[in-house]
Design a protein around this nucleic acid. Structure first.
Length: 458
RNA sequence: GCGAUCAUAGCUCAAUCGGUUAGAGCGCCGGUUUGUGGUACCGGAGGUUGCGGGUUCGAUCCCCGUUGAUCGCCCCA
């Protein structure tokens, strides 16, 4: 078994379209979080086990059976991070970051949970993470949620997702409500589904969003949180809702929404979708005012959320490619050196053009050379790989690359007068930048604004 | 941790009721034709049918086990 050449269960090898979508999500996150002033933070992939065990709650599933925990050679118990918040809070405490509070932080990277894999669920998965640490006011919750909402809008998947919002009240509210729920469900324990009987002991709030038919009726007349809500907690939640309305963030109240980790207080929210099978939550988070103090730090209020990159990537579909591809095909040894020189020249010219021409910034251009020896095959390959323009370099006998003959093919240009349609020769070019002529940069659209003047050779 | 379905070439899939040498497309390699066409032709390599055991004259096919994948429960992003 040890010599099996195979992936560990629940991990992924990302390539091509899959990684393109992944990157698109991360790039969009980075772009949007800057708009809100969230600074990047990066924390270790593993921590002392206690960092997660104490913060998440000993009885949560993640801690009790899903952590990748191991002993290092020094005998320390370490754990691969199953979430971001605990590690970031630990960093906050370790480095005395309270001097910078309030902090708006953004992170992303791999997380690890030993779970049975299924659609949108992996053992090594990736999250985006946003936290506001050291801000007690409801405006922080609003800003944080607005960031998530904005991200989803930029990713173009807002129509597939709804924001569910709830409050868990402050510590006193939550404790009283929880006690009432335990009392209510205990009285009807025999009518409860087996899963919910489990939950009664471990996490009674969870019974509220049970999918079991048997539990529905009991859940329906379970006590609601509002009866236990303290005046402060009620006002806080009210302010959050008002703020979201003002910010134009649509949401719906979800009284049964309860988050998995013990540290949540007040605001709890999830962006959910029905496009992902059993994994409905795309972004989830809430306020965790007591956590940092519990972990041994200064009393510090905080809110945060995490979003599953894989799940978001599955929602966004194909990111449109803004790539122009130039392929250089050549025939024979004599043309090889010329082709090399042409590739190098095009790449440097393009990188200069990129810096100065702002209208090009949104696009990319790739220049590649094909040299498999069979010009015919190379030509076909270039087309298959999505070439927009193909130059063939002719071996004309002259030694200098600055006098080489090129045939230019524009793969997508159907409007040309060429009788053969696209893919045929559009024009033979003799090092146009030498004589100062304008050369069109390859572009799928061929608008005039993509014409640039390549600098003459020095 | 529990349940269901599945596993055949690099990829996507065939293979009759359990029956002869397990096929096709794509991809890969080589070649032909054309200084180059949105789609040509010829040939080649590539298989322990996931793995192990059983039933049978004979197993890709039936049974058991195992590993993995997918989907669901649980939980979560």
């Amino acid at each position: 078994m040890a010599d099996k050449v195979q992936r560990v269960r629940g991990t992924q090898d990302l390539y091509g379209d899959a990684i393109a979508r992944f990157d698109h999500v991360v790039d969009t996150f980075n772009r949007v979080r800057k708009l809100y002033g969230f600074k990047r933070v990066d924390v270790p992939v593993f921590e002392f086990t206690t960092v997660f065990a104490r913060s998440l709650g000993e009885t949560t599933d993640v801690v009790s059976k899903e952590m990748y925990t191991f002993e290092d050679r020094g005998g320390e118990s370490l754990t691969l991070r199953p979430e971001f918040t605990a590690g970031i809070c630990r960093a906050f405490i370790s480095n005395g970051w309270q001097q910078f509070a309030p902090m708006k932080l953004a992170a992303y990277g791999p997380l690890f949970r030993y779970e049975r894999p299924q659609k949108g669920r992996y053992r090594q998965f990736h999250q985006l993470d946003a936290e506001i640490i050291g801000a007690a006011e409801p405006a922080a919750d609003v800003e944080l949620i607005a960031l998530a909402d904005h991200l989803l809008a930029e990713l173009g998947c807002k129509d597939k997702v709804v924001l569910q919002l709830n409050t868990l009240g402050d510590a006193a509210t939550r404790t009283a409500w929880r006690a009432a729920l335990v009392e209510h469900f205990s009285a009807h324990a025999d009518a409860l589904s087996p899963e919910s009987r489990e939950r009664l002991a471990k996490n009674p709030l969870r019974i509220l969003d049970s999918k079991s038919e048997a539990d529905r009726a009991l859940v329906a007349d379970a006590p609601g949180i509002d009866a236990f809500m303290s005046a402060e907690a009620g006002a806080f939640f009210e302010a959050v809702q008002k703020g979201l309305q003002a910010a134009g963030v649509a949401f719906e109240r979800a009284p049964a929404l309860v988050r998995g980790f013990d540290y949540y207080r007040h605001t709890a929210f999830e962006f959910v979708t029905d496009h992902l099978g059993a994994q409905g939550t795309v972004i989830g988070g809430g306020r965790y005012d007591g956590l940092i103090e519990t972990m041994g730090g200064p009393s510090t209020p905080a809110v945060g959320w995490a979003g599953g990159i894989e799940r978001l990537a599955m929602l966004v579909g194909e990111p449109k490619e803004e790539v122009d591809r130039v392929y250089i095909v050549f025939d024979g040894e004599a043309a090889a050196a010329k082709a090399e020189a042409l590739v190098a020249r095009l790449r440097t010219d393009l990188s200069k053009a990129w810096r100065s021409a702002s209208f090009l910034r949104e696009r990319r251009c790739e220049v590649e050379m094909l040299s498999r020896g069979n010009a015919k095959k190379d030509f076909e390959r270039a087309r298959e790989r999505g070439a927009d323009v193909i130059y063939t370099v002719r071996a004309d006998g002259s030694p200098g690359w600055d006098s080489m003959l090129l045939d230019e093919y524009r793969v997508h240009d159907r409007t040309g007068s060429d009788p053969h349609g696209t893919g045929a020769v559009v024009g033979a070019v003799v090092m146009p930048w030498i004589i100062g002529r304008e050369v069109r940069l390859p572009s799928a659209s061929y608008r005039a604004d993509y014409h640039i003047r390549l600098p003459a050779q020095a």
